[in-house]
Write a protein that binds this DNA or RNA. Structure first.
Length: 461
RNA sequence: GGCGGCGUGGCCGAGUGGUUAGGCAGGGGCCUGCAAAGCCCCGUACUCCGGUUCGAAUCCGGACGCCGCCUCCA
């Protein structure tokens, strides 16, 4: 049984799939107007972890995540750079997938672009107009939030206080300050699609409704995103579905923010670090490990110290993988459960799994895994035959979470290999000063030298 | 102003009414020709003030501090 905090219910609830054994997930993807920042990295890692975990637990997961390729910010950027909107969108979508690849985030089952769904959006707006759930003003079509009786479900506060807090809008002719644009009429030079109610482009909240319902069907299982999307974005998506009498997401889940010096990292605050900057100077797996070390709903401080901390922990895991010659798992292929574990190992796997089943408690699961690493090293030191099986189980769980441990040795050049050979030779003769001198030479070349029962082993420092 | 969340050892970060979280860093030890790696031990933490309780870091109330949402935002 998988349990997950549901934003609408404000409690951890069992995830009850619409269809037995299958889980459909929609995650709001990026607007491709700029490079992704650490916050994008976190939400994609969090939901990738969850997706992989569901797969490991035997679910058939259909995972849809969109690309918003038509938006005010794309238009602004295109104007500023004197290029087409499509050029901006294409460029940053490429950057996006490149970063996702480096992070080891699985490709969505389907990754729809908003511009591919314009017709369906136009139909939706037309229907809302017919039902009087929407109305036309001179700059666009607006949704009337009173058409969604339980509007405010995800805002987690009374409608009245939302109205009171709503920004004073230039459009005082909206029926309610909470009403939002479904369709924006094009100004000269802006991208536009023809419709009966006026040429223009969709509002942001409309695309996700039609794409989620279109690709996952009514009553799909889970809608995810960053916490800042809960209101108004997800609220507004839901309102449209409700007004149409269509069943929307059964569960809502939101991840916490990435913080920078105690403040939310965001484009508008200008305090963001781009994902590429991090990936250039760090093993991408360190970010995944860092994300796993805090609960997905908590704020996460990503800075040089916390990243370095994660990198050091990762070194230890890689050394462990090398000791047991473990294969690297969890790349493009999600990991499934193994069937042949001893009772003892199976108990450990099940206990760790139950922590992940319960609201994706990755920090607690990691604690169990690190304990098991120490235990397995001890078993191996004692020459216990069960150590390799433990090591494989640990590797499988890390792989299931998309963290591939690297057990394979690094490529070493011929000269270094020769130094290793000569050092083993010297050690065989108990010529310690020569052995130490050769170790020094290897260290000069940036290797960390370790002795093992198989002789000299070296790894990159 | 309205609403919500958080405050854990040097740092990060789970958890729970009574029993070791874990990682990183630091100290000591074992092992090792010396190192490295590994293993073991250690600091005995829970913002403050009251209250409930045999017992609270964990429940309740208050104070202080921090953060978020209410506005584009992952």
């Amino acid at each position: 049984m998988i349990r997950l905090f549901d934003t609408a219910a404000q409690e951890v609830r069992e995830l009850r799939p619409r269809d037995e054994g299958r889980i459909s997930i929609y995650v709001c993807g990026p607007t491709v107007y700029d490079v992704p920042h650490l916050g994008h990295g976190r939400f994609t890692l969090v939901w990738d972890l969850f997706r992989r975990w569901l797969h490991f637990r035997g679910f058939d997961v259909r995972f849809v995540s969109n690309i918003t390729d038509v938006d005010d910010k794309i238009i602004q950027r295109a104007e500023r750079e004197q290029v087409s909107e499509a050029a901006v969108a294409t460029k940053y979508e490429e950057v996006w997938w490149d970063s996702m690849g480096q992070l080891g985030v699985l490709r969505p089952t389907v990754a729809p672009r908003a511009t591919e769904w314009i017709d369906t959006m136009v139909e939706l707006v037309s229907t809302l107009l017919e039902r009087d759930a929407a109305y036309v003003l001179d700059d666009g079509v607006y949704f009337d939030v009173s058409a969604a009786p339980d509007y405010g479900l995800l805002a987690l506060q009374p409608l009245e206080s939302l109205r009171a807090g709503a920004r004073v809008d230039a459009r005082s002719d909206k029926r309610s300050p909470l009403d939002f644009a479904l369709w924006k009429f094009a100004k000269p030079g802006e991208p536009k699609w023809p419709t009966p109610f006026g040429d223009g482009r969709p509002g942001w909240h409309t695309e996700c409704v039609v794409m989620s319902l279109g690709l996952l069907g009514e009553g799909f299982d889970l809608h995810c995103g960053g916490l800042d999307l809960a209101f108004p974005h997800h609220e507004n998506e839901r309102a449209q579905a409700v007004a149409l009498g269509r069943e929307f997401a059964r569960h809502w889940a939101h991840n916490g923010f990435v913080m920078s010096d105690g403040e939310k990292m965001s484009k508008s605050l200008g305090n963001f670090t781009s994902l590429s900057d991090l990936l250039e100077r760090t093993d991408p797996r360190a970010y995944r490990l860092l994300v796993m070390r805090s609960h997905y709903r908590s704020p996460l401080d990503v800075n040089v110290e916390t990243v370095a901390d994660a990198e050091r922990a990762l070194v230890r895991l890689d050394i462990f993988a090398r000791r047991f010659d473990l294969p690297t798992l969890g790349g493009d292929e999600p990991v499934g459960p193994s069937t042949s574990w001893s009772e003892e190992v199976l108990t450990f796997v099940n206990e760790t799994a139950s922590l992940l089943d319960d609201d994706l408690n990755t920090p607690a699961a990691l604690a169990r895994l690190f304990e098991a690493v120490a235990r397995t090293n001890t078993l191996a030191d004692q020459g216990d035959d069960s150590a390799p099986e433990w090591a494989r189980a640990i590797n499988t769980l890390f792989g299931a979470l998309g963290l591939g441990l690297r057990g394979e040795g690094e490529d070493l050049d011929d000269d270094s290999a020769e130094l290793v050979r000569r050092r083993d030779d010297a050690r065989g003769r108990r010529d310690w000063s020569e052995a130490d001198r050769l170790r020094g030479e290897l260290e000069q070349r940036g290797w960390i030298v370790e002795d093992s029962s198989q002789g000299t082993r070296i790894r990159r420092g």
